[in-house]
Nucleic acid binder design. Structure first.
Length: 362
DNA sequence: GTCCGGGTCT
DNA sequence: AGACCCGGAC
């Protein structure tokens, strides 16, 4: 789930705060989030929305229906213009590295006895190699310079937009998320007060193209209420308080801290960062040499040695890399410029894996 | 047509 | 571990 493109559209001006805090306590925070933020409980489902989508229907029928509904959406009380999602469609051919010529200058690897030593000596070369690969092709995240939409907004509104778009963005292509943000914007709903006054079902309908839209509509309403009641309409400026928002987990919280507040508290570990870090042998479960099993383990492990300057850029870098070359299934190791630095290179079979077993045998 | 990925909550 | 959703891979 590439966020960088989306977020690059909402980038803030260089005015930012520089205070740094301890980056460690996300877990504790999550554990105690209920106490930390009593409002969260109160806000709990105050409206239950029932949707016509509950009817059983075939996936394809449903797909068509949703599409149609999107197109017809103009009939709603809130005047809206469906953003041209088609115009934002992710062009996969563009995203793929076009030629083997993408291979960057390779760095010699000398076998070292100790894995950690190898990592320490090579991480810079690895990052450099990945950057080079990213230059030759255009991953979705590479399309920058779309600061227009975001830069028109005052800082506070921009931060709110970042929060809302982040909350909508998980499991959703950033083009779609962006369209949804635009739709909210066009309806004057990039504003906590307006959102709170908007019917949840209507909100859900507006953001329908994004995944899990009902749940997100609920969470966005809750978050807006909390922003209003506790933060003067601004978004929380600490990791803890962001994590206290329902629908905001570690990944999104770190992202929002980086993008909205320019105050990176930790690494934003999504599925790409998680997968690639493990393939590179960059991260281990506490006290073992085993791969990490959760993004949070990856984050902790990565933060232990990766210089803080790299914390923010590592996400868009690996996301783009993961979209184009180091894909979850059948990574394109032959096109990868750092395959000589990667302990996992060519080790994952290009045809279906042990995973196949996983079909159904309870 | 079926299945799977992906972040978060429960 | 399953639910939430959709698009894309198979």
């Amino acid at each position: 789930m590439p966020l960088a493109l989306l977020l690059s559209r909402i980038r803030l001006p260089p005015a930012a705060m520089a205070s740094t805090r301890s980056a460690s306590s996300a877990r504790l925070v999550r554990a105690s989030r209920a106490e930390a933020n009593p409002v969260v409980r109160e806000v709990k489902r105050e409206s239950s929305v029932s949707f016509d989508i509950s009817k059983p229907e075939s996936p394809s029928v449903k797909r068509k229906r949703v599409k149609r509904e999107l197109e017809e959406n103009g009939e709603h009380p809130v005047k809206q213009v469906v953003p041209d999602i088609e115009d934002f469609r992710y062009d996969k051919t563009k995203a793929l590295i076009s030629s083997s010529k993408a291979t960057p200058p390779l760095v010699k690897v000398e076998k070292k006895a100790r894995v950690s030593a190898v990592i320490k000596e090579n991480w810079e070369a690895v990052l450099r190699g990945i950057k080079n690969m990213r230059l030759s092709g255009q991953a979705p995240v590479d399309t920058k310079g779309c600061e227009k939409a975001g830069s028109l907004l005052p800082p506070k509104e921009r931060r709110f937009a970042v929060l809302i778009s982040t909350m909508m963005s998980s499991q959703t292509k950033d083009e779609v998320t962006h369209a949804a943000v635009e739709r909210l914007s066009e309806n004057g709903l990039l504003d906590p007060d307006a959102i709170v006054r908007t019917d949840e079902a209507m909100l859900a309908n507006l953001i329908k193209p994004v995944g899990f839209y009902q749940r997100k509509a609920q969470f966005i309403k809750e978050a807006s209420k909390i922003c209003l009641e506790r933060f003067g309409g601004d978004i929380p400026d600490s990791l803890n308080e962001l994590l206290a928002l329902r629908g905001v987990g570690p990944k999104m919280a770190h992202l929002v801290m980086s993008i909205a507040w320019k105050n990176t508290q930790g690494i934003c570990v999504d599925t790409h960062v998680h997968r690639i870090s493990n393939r590179l042998g960059w991260v281990f479960r506490e006290g073992t040499k085993q791969k990490t099993t959760t993004p949070e383990q990856t984050r902790i492990s990565l933060e232990k040695w990766l210089p803080k300057d790299e914390w923010e850029p590592i996400n868009p870098l690996l996301v783009g890399f993961g979209q184009t070359i180091c894909t979850p299934l059948r990574p394109k190791c032959d096109m990868c410029g750092i395959n000589n630095l990667c302990p996992s290179a060519f080790k994952e079979s290009s045809s279906p894996n042990p995973k196949q077993k996983k079909t159904r045998s309870p």
